[in-house]
Design a protein around this nucleic acid. Structure first.
Lengths: 109, 109
DNA sequence: ACCTCGCGCAACCCCAGGGTTGCATATCCG
DNA sequence: CGGATATGCAACCCTGGGGTTGCGCGAGGT
């Protein structure tokens, strides 16, 4: 499970930055875009956006595609599933614990 | 939606650290525990664990309860819902976009 | 050929925050 | 009371990484 843990780590790490999440939001709504396009509507430099896109790419959340002299980034959200899985697991365990507690409580009365 | 955004930010921020996720894992499985207990099974100092628990608390993912001289931390996973919601939204938009694309493609043939 | 535009690279700045050590404080127990 | 144990607080170190500027290079258009 170490591999999955690594991916989970990469994803949460990637999602921990608001700018990066904003980029994902835009790519979710807009199919694909170049770094320069994305940078125009954001309060940071193109270089900053590029860096973010690169780390998103490392996390597998985004994929670059070269077209001539421009590079289009597209959303590849499958890795979100890993993070989602982790969260559900924590929540589930918690719920289960609550369930057990409640059951024990009910049967005690 | 600014408030919700803030919470999402807090949650993802909190989840971005492996140690913090490990703490949540343990609290999910173990009902509640003190910082010293948690620190014993981790490769860091009690102080570090305390700091993590505090930031988790700020994010609303954990709640401290004093009992005499010890402080028990318990899981309060509701805020996970916000993060979960964000992820689902991104995924959903993406799926929808794929759907539209596929429909257009199908109807074109 | 020439000019323009979009990228990539590298050096650099700066600070948040993860981790530590050291000590003070408060509670429990014999 | 007095020792042991669990926290709390504060100062401090140091790396990571978000952000910037500056420049070189290749691709396109005219």
């Amino acid at each position: 499970m170490a591999a999955r843990d690594d991916r989970v780590d990469a994803v949460f790490q990637a999602l921990s930055d608001p700018t990066r999440r904003a980029l994902l939001d835009r790519l979710a709504a807009q199919r694909a875009a170049t770094a320069t396009e994305l940078a125009e509507t954001m309060p940071v430099t193109r270089q900053a956006v590029v860096k973010h896109l690169q780390s998103l790419s490392r996390a597998g959340l985004v994929a670059p595609t070269r077209q001539g002299r421009e590079v289009h980034y597209a959303l590849t959200p499958k890795p979100l599933g890993d993070a989602l899985g982790w969260m559900m697991a924590v929540g589930a365990e918690w719920d289960e614990r609550l369930d057990r507690l409640r059951r024990r409580f009910d049967s005690r009365k």
